[in-house]
Design a protein around this nucleic acid. Structure first.
Ligand SMILES: [Mn+2]
Ligand SMILES: [Mn+2]
Ligand SMILES: [Zn+2]
Ligand SMILES: [Zn+2]
Lengths: 141, 141
DNA sequence: TATACAAATGATAATCGTTCTTATTTGCAT
DNA sequence: ATGCAAATAAGAACGATTATCATTTGTATA
C-alpha cells in the first residue's frame, strides 16, 4: 500500500478510501481514469468504497495538486497523476486510447497568439480526436 | 425572418421552430450560445418552443453543418454559426470575453503530432484561458 | 490505552444537462 | 382540401455529478 505522506503533506487525513484511490492511480495499467473507472476497479478488487467518496476524493486530490482533471469529449471527467510537467492529449474516438504529447512549437505559437490578441495565458487545453492504429482498435477505415 | 433555403438545402423541412432558432443565431448579439441560452432567448421574445425541440434542432443543425458545437468547460455544449472556416478560441477567465483565432503553424504541428503517434485526426479543440486587456475587464495583475 | 470529537464516509436523494417516448400537430405533396 | 410522414411539445428517463445526513473513523489528548 502507498505511503500516507503524500496525503499528510496535502493537508488530508490519511484515510483508507484515500489511500486506496491513490494506490490505484499509482498501480493501474490505465493512466487516465474516470470516477466510475476508479469505483469499478476498487469494487472488483474487493475494496468497497462509496461512489460519492470516489468523487469527493478525486476532487480533493485535484485541489491538492496530486491529480489533474481533463474534460475530454464524452461528458465525463478523467483524472491522471500530476507529473508536474504539462502535456496535451490525443484520443482515439473508436477505442478511447489516449496518448500524451508535448510540442514546443505549438506551445510557443499559443503564446504568440495570446500576445497578439492582448491576453496573458493562464492555462490551455488541446485535445486532438481521431482514429488510432492499435491492433485491438475497432477502427473502420 | 430568415430565408428557409438553408434548411431546404440541408434536407430539413422548414418548420417554425427551426426558422426561429436559425434566426436567433443570425441576429443574436452573442455568437456562442448554449441550448438553454437559445431556449430562454426564444421564450423572452414571446416565441414558445419546447426545450426538447431546441436540443433536437441544434443537433440537426450541427449535423447539417449549419452550426458548430464546442465543448467548453462548464459542462454545457455551446453552438455558433458555421463560418465554414475552422478556428480556435481564447477565453478571458476574468470577464468571459472570447476571441477566435486560427494559427496555421499550430494546425500543421497537430497533423505532425498525430502522424507521429499513429493517429488520423478527425477533430480537435484548442482552448486558451487567460486574462484579457479590455478596459471593462476586471483584471487583477 | 481509553475518550472525545471533528473530519470523513457511504447510502441515497437531488441536481443538471441532455435524450427518449409518445400523443398531437404541422408542413407539404397530391 | 386531404392525407400522411415528419416534426413538435411535454414530461419521463437518463448519466454524470453533487448535496444531505446519519454513522463511522482517524487522531489528538488525557
Ligand atoms: Mn495525460
Ligand atoms: Mn467561435
Ligand atoms: Zn483506437
Ligand atoms: Zn477579460
Amino acid at each position: 500500500m502507498h505511503q500516507p505522506d503524500h496525503l499528510k503533506s496535502a493537508g488530508l487525513k490519511s484515510t483508507l478510501p484515500r489511500l486506496k484511490v491513490l494506490d490505484l492511480f499509482e498501480n493501474s495499467k490505465e493512466r487516465h481514469l474516470s470516477a466510475e473507472d476508479v469505483y469499478k476497479q476498487l469494487l472488483s478488487s474487493g475494496e468497497d468504497v462509496g461512489l460519492a467518496t470516489v468523487y469527493r476524493v478525486l476532487t480533493q486530490f485535484e485541489q491538492a495538486g496530486l491529480l489533474v482533471r481533463h474534460h475530454f469529449e464524452g461528458g465525463k471527467s478523467v483524472f491522471e497523476l500530476n507529473k508536474g510537467e504539462h502535456h496535451d492529449h490525443i484520443v482515439c474516438l473508436q477505442c478511447g486510447h489516449v496518448e500524451e504529447f508535448f510540442d514546443t512549437a505549438i506551445e510557443a505559437r499559443q503564446e504568440n497568439v495570446a500576445t497578439t490578441l492582448g491576453f496573458t495565458i493562464r492555462d490551455h487545453s488541446l485535445h486532438i480526436y481521431g482514429d488510432c492504429t492499435k491492433k485491438d482498435c475497432p477502427h473502420k477505415p
